[in-house]
Amino acid sequence: MKKLFSTLLVFVLVVGLLAGCGNTDSSGDVTGEQKGSGDGNLKVAALLPGPVNDQGWNATAYNGLKLVEEKFGAEIAYTESVPVSDYEETFRNYAVAGYDIIIGHGFEFGDTAMKVAPEFPETKFIVTSTNISQEPNVASLNTDNFEQGFIQGVVAATLTETNTVGAVGGLEIPPIIDSLRGFEVGAKYINPDINVLTVFTGDFEDAAKAKEMAVALIEKGVDILMVDADQAGIGSIEAAADKGILAIGANGDQNALAPDTIVTSGVDDLAMALEILVQDILDGKFEAKYYDLGVAEGAVYLAPYYGFEDKLAQEDKDAIAQVIEDMKSGKLDAHSLDK
């Protein structure tokens, strides 16, 4: 018992000591609380659900931040792989540190943003891939993943020779579900009788599993494969390369991952969407609303064909371009095709 007591005593001392250091340390900063925007330097931060180097979802946010840094001279910061239990704390920390715009990259940050926002009226909270908003300072910014999947499906259905196309998704979450659903609707828009096979790997980490699942799809006759599983998806793309079929990238332009395999990518250009939104904020035109940016707004588009430019039939390219043109002009509402 005495041992325990002395143990406790020492611990209290140590913690006190450390806390003491912490206090002297932070006292300097505390005065600047909630005033960060005063020095004229725009500060933008993002909370990411995964690692920044995933070549997918989180990388798009990273690129967005980089673009904002470049364009507006903003000071940027991010926290990656934020666990659910830390959402609130992380939002609050950035707000206290004087960040003007805080982005929660994913629907899952919605609840927390709305909860924290009222305490920091000067700070704008942006949540992606959802449709929430809350006066005066919470808006949602959605790059339309359904439309992204739709144009990917259009490409796949146009190029397939086996009449079977497939898609590999990571975790079953809205951006992925939407893009896989859009893929199916888009493919069927071109050819109602097409065979669309979709699988989920259940995570974003196990690239080997994503590869084997892609192989299973290819063995089922899939000859055009759409991949939307972030870093795990690189495995699926490799499967396509090994088996000599074409793949369609997702989120960003993924051509560089496998130039001979990735015919194009369905890009949801968060960077561009973010740029539009930040410009709005700087112009004082910010509204607490749902910013839904899709093909028509230029935030969702098809990446270049690169090496495939000359290999694809002109009529195929024209047919794809026509669908996108129709979406831009409003003649075609992809969402209306989804029952």
Binding site: A207, A208, K211
Partner: peptide, 16 residues
């Protein structure tokens, strides 16, 4: 084997 036999790159926590 996981990173070079099954695949040809490394991703975080890939052994899963």
């Amino acid at each position: 084997y996981v990173s070079l036999g099954l695949l040809s790159f490394f991703t975080e926590n890939m052994v899963a």
